[in-house]
Design a protein around this nucleic acid. Structure first.
Lengths: 256, 256
DNA sequence: TAGTGGTCTAGACCACAGC
DNA sequence: CTGTGGTCTAGACCACTAC
């Protein structure tokens, strides 16, 4: 009796091979975005495997962010709709920058909104206190809010400001007035003029996935913006959590 | 006889609850980076579940990028070592930008190298040809290479240049000479002075995961840099694939 | 009600690391 | 050799969706 390598071939296909086959169909477009992927039952008969094995194949593609399952309905190839964020924002104007982009978006007319606004005065986390130069006992005003495009959440942001500077101003109120927080800071003699943004990407924590309604296999992009006055003082730290499946980030700069 | 909701509680814990418990231990530091996570056998007896269930719990954390399994050895809490990439590079010099960063790195003395260098003349992909303004039939010189830090691959980059411009120059050779490609382009009257970088993040394709030796649950960051001459002509498109677990990206800019 | 995805058991065997 | 992670079967039951 011939003994077949069970873990790898077993004469049939393993869940990896099934995942590869489906992924290939997605890549070539045979399975177009939005279309239905074969059900577990169909995979079982097509590839001659049991349900858990068929299931694991789909699990792989879910974790790669290629498909989404809807219980009772089926599993579908994922569709993406990207939103472009430019830093600095003036990049949106024409210039060498107006040329063709690698990825196309159509954000111009998509309705945007904000919800979940929360304002508080807190002891800032150590890393934030350090950047803002807060002394022992000095607090921070924190503003949290969620951004939506087409009523879909795509970003959650948490901004910190030195409490001694913004105490009693509109920075600590829901309505920050014309020009927003930066205009208020300017009136306080702390106009932000230099900016640094630090970025990372990783898989989301559970709370982040819930807040942004992320599908399995969707990383988040962490953007931390620090704003400095002309004097070099940091007056804002803004920690943003972005749904990576909804964003293209764009930066522009010139050599000296 | 009391009927317990089987899918959720069953009296014991589901794989999600087990994953939550382990994740909490990682978050609090009870399970420190590098330390060994309970084996499948231990989870089975601790939580009174079968092996596949214990296994699925670990699978969740793997897909979140929190742990890595080494067959025969065990499963371990992941350790990260971050490398900082600054754009523009001059940000490295002092100034308002020299202040404390949110994430700390120690790249200064880590040895970096390049391998897998490949150079070819090809028909550029449509989106690249469009950006470079290539006419029908005009080709592109493409340079591919992989970047390593501490002999660990962290980035794979593919650069395209208009073949009519760089034909027969060192841009199309392995050794690009002093100052690299940008110095050669300058000599050709095509000095890059303006830059745009577009970023995305997503889970890696299989080929990307292999090339960068990525652990499960590790997204990639896609960076596409387009370089323009003073005349506004695009002379380089550089598509980079970054291991998100190894990188912090930093951008700086000033208002007006 | 039928079909689809989601969870779990019970048990088997394979591949690999470390002692 | 033992223990660890990796793969698979066979069969059960639950929860949800669409008809």
């Amino acid at each position: 009796m011939v003994q077949v390598d069970r873990a790898t071939s077993r004469g049939g296909m393993g869940y990896r091979a099934i995942a590869d086959a489906l992924r290939a169909e997605i890549d070539t477009g045979d399975l177009a975005p939005g279309s239905k992927v074969p059900s577990e039952n169909e995979l079982m008969s097509t590839y001659g495997v049991e349900q858990p094995t068929a299931r694991r194949a789909l699990e792989v593609l879910k974790n790669e962010g290629l498909i989404v399952a809807r219980r009772g309905a089926g599993t579908f190839v994922r569709e993406f709709r990207l939103y472009r964020r430019r830093s600095p924002a003036r990049l949106a104007e024409s210039g060498w920058n107006a040329g063709r982009s690698i990825w196309q978006t159509d954000d111009a007319k998509r309705p945007t909104s904000i919800d979940h606004i929360e304002i508080a005065t807190v002891d800032a986390p150590d890393h934030v206190a350090s950047v803002l130069g807060l002394q022992d006992g000095e607090k921070a005003v924190v503003r949290r809010r969620r951004y939506l495009v087409d009523d879909v959440p795509i970003q959650f942001a948490t901004s910190y400001y030195p409490e001694p500077i913004v105490r009693g101003t509109q920075v600590a109120e829901k309505n920050t007035g014309d020009g927003g927080v930066y205009a208020r800071l300017a009136e306080l003699g702390c106009k932000p003029v230099d900016f640094r943004e630090e970025l990372r990407s990783r898989m989301p924590r559970e709370a982040e996935a819930k807040l942004l309604d992320l599908a399995q296999g969707t990383p988040v992009i962490l953007v931390v913006r620090t704003a400095y006055t002309a004097g070099g003082q940091a007056v804002e730290v803004n920690e943003m959590v972005l749904d990576s499946s909804s964003y293209i980030l764009e930066y522009g700069f010139s050599s000296s």
